[in-house]
Design a binder for these strands. Structure first.
Lengths: 263, 263
DNA sequence: AGGAATCGTTGCGATAATCGCAACGGCGTT
DNA sequence: AACGCCGTTGCGATTATCGCAACGATTCCT
């Protein structure tokens, strides 16, 4: 072992390395060869080959017989959807939302991208004058709201027009109509790192949202939603906290675009 | 080991068991305790506890601190989406579609549920008089087509009305309009095991589709799409093949609702 | 076209990680 | 209040694993 700090607790080394192999696949690098990954993980070729063969036998990986390289396999699709549906996620997300909700004094939401739209996954509602009660499980159109902007501003370019072309009807005046306008705002969001919406869903409601990534793709967003009168004065400070919460979630959901793995 | 038949090939036992632990989570049983799983997998408590701790440390599982039981974790969400997006799936799906396409002489499609709609994931087009060229990546409304029926007939009851209420506009006369009618057809599909659509997308196009499951949830559907004149006479035989292909995919994507794990 | 380098795979022995047993403290139940 | 089941941990024997080396096949480069 290169690292002298041994894990004293009961962590199974072989199983852990199998998970490291899985975590090595990202949007930018969706396929890996054996020697390729061996170098990256600093393991022997033979070890990585046996790990990948084990994963492939259970369809967690699939080997392209032509290129002899591996990709993520079908077994992960069902597991991912099950994880998304069940409330295992809320166990991880809720504490972070609670913290964000306490420090800002507003309601917080975790939304996940879902077929060009986004779905309210976990919510922590804050009692107050403008009590914004989130509808967990509900789908929202992708082009609306700070949450939507934080998500789809980082979506692959080629998927955006197909998703937004057919349905562009809004709920408030502030809703963005034209696609060019939308693209321009997306550029702003990408540059700033978070999105702000002034009363798109409801005129008196302001949202601040930051994207959550997983393995190089946008998974969803964290948002603070509250009364405009209360949020606007301290918008910068709140945005900073939202981004921090989103980054924390990115750590838990997978590797950020260019950051190292945990451990 | 109780079994004397040793795995001669290079399969890492510990890693393989970690995958078995993950595969044990289904829609019907979304959470497991340590002793619980140990009995089911016929392993020692301590071993399963260390496996689950290893998985939890990488966020592949999360432990509910109250109940001390585990659920699928956030790390699987990103991996699942990445697996779904990349073409690792087509490596598995395409050979099956090719076989189905050859034995039926028609085009075949694999569609996956996506936020109340379904997305064309993999397609094998068959040249012919009514060459039906599938649009890979395109989203279709969930209430239309045989593929949609095969998918959403097996969807959790409570999610269907919310998904279908707002948008019920069709492309052909045969499209089902009312929700009651839809519910009745879903019952038929569930009983028969497959769905048939007569010209919903196009009047001369007939589709036969069967659901693909993964860990107890509907993941998508396999469909044969072709000219009505050619498909209708041999509809029963084709339906049988479609169901067989869908079942084969269910095996690769995860455990079917009540069937044993592979191996 | 030929040679060299790289790839994925396999054998094998030393060794370290794993496995199963047993015990422990904490909880909910009876 | 005692029981039973849970999740967790220590520890020794043993077993699965790990790293080295070698092998064909393929690819890349000249």
């Amino acid at each position: 072992m290169s690292s002298s700090s041994r894990a004293p607790s009961g962590v199974l080394q072989t199983a852990d390395r199998a998970l490291l192999v899985l975590a090595a696949f990202t949007e930018r690098e969706p396929e890996h060869g054996v020697s390729d990954l061996a170098r990256r993980l600093d393991l022997d070729k033979s070890q990585v080959q046996r790990l990948m063969a084990t994963l492939a036998r259970r369809d967690f990986l699939v080997a392209d017989p032509r290129t002899r390289r591996y990709r993520l396999g079908p077994a992960l699709v069902g597991l991912g959807r099950l994880a998304e549906r069940g409330d295992g996620i809320s166990t991880v997300v809720r504490p972070i939302l609670l913290d964000l909700s306490e420090t800002t004094g507003e309601s917080t939401v975790f939304n996940v991208a879902d077929g060009g739209r986004y779905r309210c996954s976990v919510a922590v509602d804050q009692p107050g004058p403008f009590r914004y009660t989130s509808a967990v499980g509900q789908l929202f159109p992708g082009h609306g709201g700070a949450s939507g902007h934080a998500i789809f501003a980082f979506y692959p370019e080629e998927e955006i027009p197909a998703l937004f072309a057919p349905e562009l009807e809004g709920a408030t005046d502030a809703t963005i109509g034209t696609r060019a306008e939308l693209r321009r705002r997306y550029a702003e969001v990408r540059e700033r790192g978070y999105a702000v919406s002034f009363g798109e869903h409801d005129a008196r409601v302001v949202g601040v949202a930051a994207p959550v990534f997983a393995h190089g793709t946008v998974l969803g967003s964290v948002a603070v939603v509250g009364a405009a009168a209360h949020l606007r004065p301290q918008l910068d400070a709140i945005a900073e906290r939202v981004v921090a919460a989103a980054d924390a979630l990115t750590q838990r959901f997978g590797s950020p675009p260019g950051a190292p793995q945990p451990d």
